[in-house]
């Protein structure tokens, strides 16, 4: 099964969880998602998700200038983002349990 399709549905949740853990800039978030095992996550998808969550008020952003190159844009989570993360985490737990039970029932 193509896991990129599954990933699309939970990318918001995954990005929120990573940023909740610690503020990060775009590529840093990509790196942490990959380190966590989401190898197939696309850079542009993550950047777009960060921007969309920011526009929705779930994330805040600030610019950190660099002496040797272009500035980095960091993202942190807002209280609204934390609420969203909690709701989505519960949804995911419920959903994944349901699907897991269904699959186990199917093989039994």
């Amino acid at each position: 099964m193509d896991s990129t399709q599954l990933l699309k549905g939970v990318l918001d949740l995954a990005v929120l969880a990573v940023v909740d853990d610690e503020d990060g800039y775009g590529y840093d978030v990509v790196r942490r998602l990959r380190a966590a095992g989401l190898d197939e996550v696309g850079d542009a998808s993550v950047y777009g998700t960060l921007r969309r969550l920011y526009a929705a008020g779930a994330l805040t952003s600030y610019v950190v200038p660099s002496e040797s190159g272009p500035h980095r844009k960091y993202y942190g989570i807002t209280p609204a983002g934390r609420d969203q993360l909690k709701t989505q985490r519960d949804d995911w737990a419920h959903f994944s349990t349901t699907v897991t039970d269904l699959l186990q029932g199917a093989t039994a």
Binding site: Y25, G26, Y27, D43, R51, V63, H71, R72, K73
Partner: peptide, 14 residues
């Protein structure tokens, strides 16, 4: 700028 700010640094890292 909101959408593409920081893209240069991210791409340079990549």
């Amino acid at each position: 700028e909101e959408l593409l700010g920081g893209l240069e640094a991210d791409t340079a890292d990549l």
